[in-house]
Design a protein around this nucleic acid. Structure first.
Lengths: 204, 204, 204, 204
DNA sequence: GATGAATGAGTCTTCATTCAT
DNA sequence: AATGAATGAAGACTCATTCAT
């Protein structure tokens, strides 16, 4: 077995990461043993450890990857021109969360909950997440500025405050749909629309 | 006949629970060992086990108690007459979360994140949470009905949808403030107000 | 099982240490597994670890104890008045090494070799040994001074040099008897006497 | 027909052996992994294993080689005519040990300690060493006989006993200088001389 | 011949829980 | 009732060795 190509190494990494995801979702981060992951990956202990030096590193990679994966899906929505109005925008973001979950064969929402929990005791993970969410909020603030120009929300709105509220809605959607399992992207969006529109205002 | 009165038993339970909370927040649910909790509670292993038959029960009790504690603080806000308008209401709820954290000497938000994560692998906890959030949402739906009567939001709004959106905002506030640590109840409320009010609408 | 007495704790420690010695001699330090020691001590893994926090600590204790044990046996020889002449003195020291081995049911010489080897990679052990041997040499230097006063060796002798040579003989006796197994305390002493006494000098 | 000449093979062996020595000294025999040696030798795992079938063989070879190397250096001293008197002879032997260490870029003394320790659990190594030391002692006994003829030591001296004492001094010098690091060949020799010469005897 | 990725048995250590005192 | 020492199953990780390419 001489030198393996970088391509193959990358594939192996993904193979292991997928095995890990699958276990993590079913059993949680700590109830999952390395043996579980090793068995699910169809590799040997040594092989897995040659790709990830510790369980913590594997957890980190799993969570980071899901963060990155989500970003890639949400990016187009943020860059769309013209930008969709707030409630439609939120609906699409929520749908991206839901779709990501369904498509990749693993539940992004569950991984998110596990990751947040883990971030409490893992410095590196906590920082990674902080940076991620702060950056994401900055992108939302850009969207808010856009909406102000488009007259979707009033000019005096504070970009920062609104972006915080929007992020809260998105993260809360993740939690709520993971725990109660009975919330759709559409319901979230309609709820926002109804909150926004007063009596007599014309719908969407 | 027990030497120890029921009253004393109750106090001991709280003593243990507080020790557990304190450890859980610092180290997470699984990195906390029974030894940690036993040491923090100033009791013996046997004593702790006579109050809680297993670590899982202790986790369950710790999370349930924080759920109950929060409910008690939020209850008055839901029953207030007249009900505050949406953004004010959200602000007060968020403030209750923040205050609860500060006052009891332990961080409700962290416990919430840990609890959600744990709920992934603990059937009983998951059901408890589901019931709790669904009930809480029902109370929020009542508030929505109230707001409709008061003309705060339009009559055609769907109580269920709006309650889901509101819950998302609240849960998302918990996540965001636990992870980034830079969101206040006021910012959340202002963000909602700005989202709600269009150009030319009169403020609050 | 309430609080155990200090006495019992000390006995347990010895019980474990003896199990460890016995294993270390048969298999060496690193080929001995904790399982071996646990089995030999008739205790559980947890119990052993409650007395010694790691294998390294156990190794350290085993070596230190043998150092201390030997010192206790050699002490009287150093303090004897009048001090025996050099070759007799060396003979008794060598005999103490041999006896210690036989009596305590474990081979001091083997433990010494293992310890020296381990000291190469264990900072703490190395320092402990350094201190021990330097102190021991100081005691030998005292003996040399005594011999000079008694006319056993010439006045111009350097206490330090002679103590180094004596220590070398003792340590070398340990090595040689452990490896070849065919050297007695008497042979060592006779060899020294023969080296010391020239033609025509009167014996002993 | 091998692509590689015997000469090259021999060079490779030495290259590996030197890598092994270097690792063994730094970390000890068991803390050194085959990976360490492989990395230090700049060869592949397969290559190293084609020269030494197992780690044990490598240890054996490393220790044996150091034994042989030392013999080659000491040989001339034993065959010198006229033979140096005892304390001068010991000084030169000790110096050979020290020089060997310095010149070959690796510490003979450390390897010796490791080897003795390993001999406890390695039958083959133990036998090799026994033979080596017994033979070496026989050469020392020859020297003793010489000294008797030359009147350096008294005629009634027992060649065997004296050779054992001399070997003890040499081996003990190795231990002491490896552990305390503060003994020179000269000090050892002076110590012996002082022990040998009584009051009034003429020096050297 | 050479390579180095893969193997997997074996190691040290932890920790929820029990129960003799 | 209370104690805390003891248990031992289970977990994370290592590393000598092999063999497909």
């Amino acid at each position: 077995m001489p030198k393996i190509t970088d391509e193959k190494r990358a594939l192996r990494r993904i193979q292991i990461l997928e095995a890990a995801w699958s276990c993590f979702q079913k059993q949680g981060l700590h109830a999952t043993t390395m043996s579980d992951i090793i068995a699910a990956s169809n590799l040997s202990a040594g092989a897995v450890y040659s790709y990830f030096p510790s369980k913590d590193e594997l957890i980190l990679a799993a969570v980071k990857t899901s963060l990155t994966g989500l970003r890639e899906r949400v990016e187009p929505l943020l860059n769309a021109a013209p930008l969709l109005p707030p409630s439609r925008f939120i609906e699409d973001i929520a749908r991206a969360v839901t779709d990501f979950t369904a498509r990749e064969g693993y539940d992004l929402r569950r991984v998110a909950l596990l990751g947040w929990s883990e971030a409490q005791r893992n410095e590196h993970l906590r920082e990674t997440m902080q940076v991620y969410y702060v950056e994401f909020r900055a992108r939302l603030a850009d969207a808010v500025a856009n909406w102000k120009r488009a007259g979707e929300i009033r000019k005096t709105a504070d970009d920062g405050d609104v972006s915080k509220t929007l992020l809260a809605m998105i993260l809360g959607f993740v939690v709520q749909s993971a725990i109660t399992g009975d919330v759709s992207a559409q319901e979230l969006a309609h709820g926002l629309r109804d909150l926004v529109q007063r009596e007599g205002a014309d719908a969407e």
